[in-house]
Amino acid sequence: MAYSKEDMARRAAAEIPAGAIVNLGIGLPTLCADYLPEGHAFLHSENGLLGMGPFPFEGEEDPQLINAGKQTVTVLPGGSTFDSAQSFAMIRGGHVDLAILGAMQVSARGDLANWAVPGGKIMGIGGAMDLASGCRRVIAVMQHATKDGEHKLVATCTYPLTAARVVSRVITELGVFDPTADGCFKVIELAPGVDRETVAKLTGAPLV
């Protein structure tokens, strides 16, 4: 039984220390917020918000209070708003403890590719490169391989890089893996019922 999306979000949320400032990327990482105890951590959204709360109740949506995915959100007591230069100074300046980001490819040395598919439509960079190179710790949450079994945990990224050697942990439906300086993925844990052989086949770099 591999991890479900909810399991992956719960597992990623378990990486968030109490009192941390955390930026959750668009997509699956956003779900981590559902598994954080109230007041456990402070969510940063790069469009200029710290202390981001859950989605508003129906009928209370405010088009001028959004997250970086342009979804309507709320702000918790103690929250603050600020401009984009300030927001990215927080990121670049190392004031954001952790970023949990989606990924298309992660290399065994921790390179991250999450902004463009070769030959695909260019969606843009957004805050991806700043978050990846600026946050103190970067965790990637992603599918372990493509639907066709193509590797996404690779020896060397073939997709355009977001930042080099920044990912310290990868959480997939098959388990938890750490990139290492010598180019292997260290197996931290396997999802229930997943064996090492299956993971090795679906991983483009050696496991240790």
């Binding site: 989605f55 009928g59 949506e61 088009p63 979804q71």
Partner: peptide
Amino acid sequence: EDPFEYKTSRKR
């Protein structure tokens, strides 16, 4: 006008 791009909410 202040249009919504993605109007997201939860049930009360």
